[in-house]
């Protein structure tokens, strides 16, 4: 028997597999495919104070080994999430829940964090200071140590639950931001959000995305994400949710070896709605093949080597 359980900042998960924010909605579309109670947890769509439509279309582009999106945080707004999405989710989902929170100012992040953390259903708050698709929000906080520290500190003050800060790979040095968040009281770090990229339509000679640039995710970013998780693990003491291109059970284990306590899966859910189910079903056999009896022991197990 392989033990897949992990403990994430004190929250027990039956396995480390977590659909990533923005790639799983509020769960309902996936519940049409499988019983989502088999997940370790899931992180719902980044929620802002006001409802948002997001950016103009087209806002998705196909890429070798991945995709670009410039959705720009389309969400129903905090009020609707509290009064409609969460009560509906409660009727069929009983595993831990991660609330992904967006914002455009410290005030908004704090208000969103306080409101969502007060929900009994929410186990972890994930502060998205890394969305590359909105002006003036997210990203601006995730690329400056001082701003990351300020927003983390202010949100932690109103968040009795574990607070994870989600980082962008587009920062000059992601480990500096991670250290700033840790110093400000973060209980954990999520990384990585998408990498800024673009595509150009050859026939029309113009960018494919109406927003010109967008966030690149999918298998192509896995090695970059893995390296960043590895470096961040060495730089902070708080737990890490690692993500970026994870598509298979082997990728999950590799992310954990790099230092992740739990692993999020994003774009893979969009091209295969059963992705997380298959990963979870594959984990025991892959662990057995690799001689792993307790998966949680893999976290950071690839450290200690010098270049």
């Amino acid at each position: 028997m392989v033990d897949l359980c992990v403990s994430l900042a004190g929250v027990g998960l039956q396995n480390p597999v977590i659909p990533a924010s923005g790639c799983f909605g509020f769960g309902r579309e996936f519940a049409e495919f499988y019983d989502i109670n088999l997940l370790g947890a899931f992180s719902f769509k980044g929620t802002t104070e006001e409802p948002r439509f997001g950016n103009p279309l087209p806002r998705v582009a196909d890429c070798p080994s991945g995709m670009l999106n410039s959705v720009g945080l389309q969400n129903p707004g905090m009020e609707k999430v509290l009064t409609e999405e969460l009560p509906f989710l409660k009727t069929y989902y009983h595993q831990p829940l991660i609330a992904n929170v967006g914002g455009f100012s410290v005030r908004e992040y704090v208000s969103n964090t306080a409101r969502i953390a007060a929900e009994e259903q929410v186990d972890i708050v994930e502060l998205n200071i890394s969305c590359p698709n909105v002006q003036g929000g997210g990203h601006a906080f995730g690329t400056s140590c001082a701003a990351a520290e300020e927003v983390t500190k202010a949100c932690k003050a109103v968040c009795p639950k574990p607070l994870f800060v989600k980082l962008t790979p587009n920062a000059a040095n992601i480990t500096d931001i991670a250290k700033a968040a840790e110093a400000a009281g973060a209980d954990g770090i999520s990384l990585i959000n998408t990498l800024l990229g673009m595509r150009i339509d050859l026939k029309r000679r113009r960018p494919v995305l109406a927003n010109i640039a967008g966030g690149y995710s999918g298998p192509g970013i896995f090695p970059v994400a893995l390296r960043m998780v590895y470096e961040t693990y060495a730089a902070v003491r708080i737990p890490i949710m690692g993500m970026g291109g994870v598509s298979t059970a082997r990728d999950v284990i590799e992310m954990m070896l790099a230092g992740a306590t739990a692993v999020q899966v994003g774009a893979a859910n969009l091209v295969d709605p059963y992705a997380c189910k298959y990963i979870i079903e594959d984990l025991p056999a892959v662990c057995a093949e690799l001689g792993i009896t307790r998966l949680s022991e893999m976290t950071g197990a690839a450290h200690g080597w010098s270049a």
């Binding site: 923005g22 790639c23 799983f24 909605g25 579309e29 996936f30 049409e32 769509k45 997001g54 279309l57 087209p58 806002r59 998705v60 582009a61 995709m67 999106n69 959705v71 389309q74 859910n269 969009l270 091209v271 709605p273």
Partner: peptide, 11 residues
């Protein structure tokens, strides 16, 4: 243009 085709990504 679609990301998922089943309502999950808002693309």
């Amino acid at each position: 243009r679609m990301g998922c085709g089943f309502g999950a990504c808002m693309c």
